[in-house]
């Protein structure tokens, strides 16, 4: 996909951290040689095209009170995958839910990221999801150490 210099400039700007200033797009507009209005209208277009999913604050979940997080991987078959995926997606505490192509000897192909405020809440959530989806075979894969957590830099 080709991006013109204004789009590239905006992508570079938005993948970093917007300055905490009354007019955060001012310097960018000077740098790119266009008006702040132009930048905003381009951002709106990129949002409408779906390139930008969201604009705003990205939180550190752990510091925002969601201290217990786990990746739970479930074994699901072709017939029940979509229904199970939808049920999981409806949980407020599930942030990500994907069906993945996995090695056969691993087999857990439906991944959910669950965020809870306590261990009790986490196990209740998992029980609840298991009950509602009817999926019995799952593993909880917890993070032990974070080596990297950043946003993608496209340019």
């Amino acid at each position: 996909m080709a991006y013109d210099h204004i789009e590239r400039g905006i992508i570079k700007f938005l993948q970093a951290d917007i300055p905490l200033a009354p007019r955060p797009y001012r310097y960018l507009s000077e740098e790119l040689g266009c008006s702040e209005e132009e930048i905003i209208s381009r951002i709106i277009k990129m949002k409408n095209r779906g390139l930008i999913k969201r604009l705003g604050a990205v939180l550190r979940h752990q510091k925002a009170g969601f201290t217990v997080n786990a990746m739970v991987a479930w074994k699901v078959d072709e017939n029940t995958k979509d229904q199970a995926g939808q049920i999981m997606a409806d949980f407020n505490e599930v942030s990500h839910c994907y069906l993945r192509e996995v090695p056969e000897d691993f087999g857990y192909n439906l991944f959910s990221m669950i965020h809870a405020r306590s261990e009790e809440e986490l196990s209740e959530l998992i029980d609840n999801i298991a009950r509602q989806t009817g999926l019995k075979d799952y593993i909880i894969i917890r993070s032990v150490k974070e080596y990297k957590k950043t946003s993608m830099k496209y340019f």
Binding site: Q15, K53, G56, A57, M152
Partner: peptide
């Protein structure tokens, strides 16, 4: 305080 990581765009 580390509550907000950044303010910006989340891309698809």
């Amino acid at each position: 305080r580390g509550i907000i990581r950044r303010i910006g765009g989340v891309f698809d």
